[in-house]
Amino acid sequence: MEKQSIEQLQKICTQLRRDVLRMVHAVQSGHPGAPLGCAEFFVSLYFDILRHDPNFNMDGKDEDLFFLSNGHLSAGWYSVLARSGYFPVEELKTFRKINSRLQGHPATEEGLPGIRVASGSLGQGLSVALGAAQAKKLNGDDKLVYILLGDGELQEGQVWEAAMYAAHYGVDNLIATIDYNGQQIDGPTEKVMDLKNLKAKWEAFGWEVNEIKDGNNLEAVLEGLKKAKSLSGKGKPVMNLLYTEMGYGVDFMVGTHKWHGSPPSDEQLADALGQLEETLGDY
């Protein structure tokens, strides 16, 4: 895929946000908050960082792979997959509807290109990504495996089983990212179940930790992901702490857990879309 300028990538970010809001609004269900906060991450990954082929095949040999462990960000992931050529953009309108390949949470059952494992029940993705990374090593495949996790998801114990395992085996072809937005369904993570010092936690588990302080600044995200790549292959798994704001890009949605799993009304959608330029054409 041809590299695009920052301006072009920025335009894709606003379009992704529009897609997410329109998808969730159309079916009056889904999770708008977190994918709005991860637009820069998704776009940086799929339009710059990943060496990937939108002509999808499950094994993904000699390609970088991406897994989404916090599957409720599906609207954002589907948008970036469609916008980067995995399936027709038109299909976004089927999101969460009967007989759709775009399930509420990502699934392989309907054969949607780009999805390699089901996710939604939290805490499982890091283990799967590690397995895929080790399979790459066994196959002599030097490409990388990327995965996104939610910060609230870290409350699941399986994540820490995987954390221990990754360092023990030195799975250094894996680049994980935590969407560090500090919010979960029931409120701020520090109130629900405080994560305390995440950097220290992952370092103590034997990971290389890379902080990306402004996760909603496209250039910072690109730079951070490039740095993460430079840290791979050195014997340690790499963890990006991506500081984002849930609901970023829409003034009344930003920084609160209230839009974790609530769709906007007609008026709210109009208000939100007024803040986001239609750049690539709505689906």
Binding site: K61, S127, L130, A135
Partner: peptide
């Protein structure tokens, strides 16, 4: 760590 083991196994199938 059985939960991790099941996830790892699922991941290893990707790549054959």
């Amino acid at each position: 760590a059985e939960a991790n083991m099941i996830g790892l196994a699922a991941g290893m199938t990707i790549g054959g």
